[in-house]
């Protein structure tokens, strides 16, 4: 006769508990994914850009410390904006020993497709305190137009 000792039995568990745990894990995963990225992918192409949209214009901003205006090259072709440039450090003096070297130097090139058609004639760019601000006016065809409603 089989003899089952009480302590040999596995403790009773809710069979659905494991499913519940998995569901919670998935919820958490999707939440952190959507909240953090908000559907936007972090580009690994320098520079990182923020783009704002107003009714009549697009504003593109980028952090470009240590980049001189002369070393920056902006061009627009169709609805593709290209930002090119380089960042160089001063040549090292002799007898310099580095404790930390976190700032990278090099060249960069980024092309971005703009979401709307822009007027290539009206582009303003400003580089101040290491911040680049490009203002692009939308092409007149896509600018919202106020329509006067006539009353009878």
């Amino acid at each position: 006769m089989p003899y089952v000792r009480f302590i040999d039995r596995p403790t009773f568990r809710n069979p659905w508990a494991e499913f519940e745990r998995i569901r919670q894990g998935l919820d958490e995963l999707s939440r952190s994914y959507f909240e953090k990225g908000e559907g936007q992918s972090r580009a690994n192409v320098y520079p990182a850009l923020n783009i704002y949209e107003e009714a009549d214009r697009l504003i593109v901003t980028a952090e470009l410390p240590w980049v001189k205006a002369a070393d920056l090259d902006l061009s627009i072709e169709g609805d593709t904006l290209t930002i090119q440039g380089k960042r160089e450090r001063k040549p090292d003096e002799s007898g310099v020993s580095y404790h930390r070297r976190e700032i990278e130097t090099g060249s960069f090139s980024r092309a971005i497709a703009l979401p709307v058609k822009v007027d290539a004639e009206q582009v303003g760019a400003r580089l101040a305190n290491g911040m680049l601000t490009i203002t692009l006016m939308k092409a007149s065809a896509v600018t919202p137009r106020q329509i006067q409603v006539a009353t009878e």
């Binding site: 850009l49 949209e53 979401p115």
Partner: peptide
Amino acid sequence: EQPGRIILAEY
């Protein structure tokens, strides 16, 4: 002030 609506946020 943040101009307008943000459509791409990378930094």
